[in-house]
Amino acid sequence: MRNLSKFLSATAALAIAASTAAAQAKELKYAHFQAADLASPKQAAALAFETCVEGKTSGGIDVQVYPASQLGDGSQVIEGLQLGTIQMGVVHDGPISAVYKPFAVLAMPYVFDDQAMAWAIMDGAFGKEMFEDMRKETGIRVLGVADNGVRNFTNSKRPVAEPDDMKGLKIRVQTAPVWTRLVESLGASATPVPWPELPGALQQGVVDGQENGVTNIVDASLYQHQKYVSLDGHVFSWHAYMIADAFYEGLTDAEKTAVNQCVEIAKVIHRGMTAAQDANAATILAAKGMEVVPVSPEQKAKFRELSQPAVREFIVGEIGEDWPNKLDAAVAAYRDQ
């Protein structure tokens, strides 16, 4: 009887300890916009991050993943990070550029040769300097970036192989002015539409087309309302792994280390899945019923000649020459290796 009493007391103590630990766990709400499906790079990476952080902190951080824009669009997630109602978000470049203007330099078209160059520059001194500047200006810490896909144009009207084919098309763009300038420089009209509203805008004919990487085209079933895809690869687009700096600074050193290490794991998963889809874009999108329009190097040069000076002029007008020059220098240094 005495042994039973000891057992029950020990069990009760363990239950109380577990309950207390759960109550003291730091809640980390993690928001992103892709579907709650392991085929979605952002979701696969998010679940890996959740498992990794909770394991490394022995449950000291309780990660709660909210996919499919459950906590709002990109702009709302950024606002939540600044208000402290969301602790972590993985948001694409458009909404970030609207809050932290220097991020718009990454919308410079036809800058990066391939993923290897893009990753090296964003993981290197250029990216680190930008992220620290963003933290000071916004109170949001960027822990790393992963691919939002190499962006290509799609539309429901006609094949687009060169800039003249863009004339008269209504193209959806992200909600930052730099993307409007990019599309307008090629002769099309630009309509900013938040991501959650894009499928409806295509279905209803509010816009004729849009520009995104294959991951997002497939993830949101945009191919259902788009007949043509032009593989021009105009911009290497990004998702930033962002955390509210006040929340991050409230973590212990061990918890910070866990978060940093687990973001690295999530980032590799995210990059690998997205890059693989980009590499197989023609096959993937043709299988979805889209007509794939190849863009030759000569035709891509025409897109570059029209868009790059116009977008650069806009970016310099918004943020000055400092960040565009730093990006140019980083690209030159990479090529000189």
Rank of each mutant, 00 (worst) to 15 (best):
A10T: 09
T11D: 14
A15Q: 10
S19W: 12
K26S: 03
E27A: 07
A36Q: 14
A45M: 07
A45K: 10
L47I: 14
F49P: 07
E50A: 13
V53S: 03
E54N: 13
G55R: 04
S58P: 02
D62E: 05
L71W: 07
Q76D: 05
I78Q: 10
Q82A: 13
Q87K: 13
V91I: 14
I96W: 11
I96P: 09
S97Q: 06
K101E: 08
Y110R: 04
D113Y: 00
D114F: 06
Q115E: 13
I121Q: 08
I121C: 05
D123R: 05
G124D: 03
A125Q: 14
A125P: 13
F126N: 02
G127T: 04
M130D: 12
G139Q: 02
D147N: 15
R151Y: 10
R151L: 14
K157H: 12
L169R: 04
K170M: 14
I171A: 09
L182M: 10
L182I: 12
G187N: 05
V193G: 02
P194T: 03
P194G: 04
G200P: 07
G209V: 02
N212I: 07
N212D: 08
V214R: 04
I217Y: 10
S221I: 08
Y223D: 09
Y223M: 04
V229P: 06
S237A: 14
M242S: 12
M242H: 04
D245V: 10
G250Y: 06
G250W: 05
L251H: 06
T257R: 03
I269F: 11
A275E: 12
D278Y: 00
A281C: 01
V293T: 02
V295M: 07
E298H: 11
L306P: 07
P309M: 00
W323M: 13
Y334C: 03
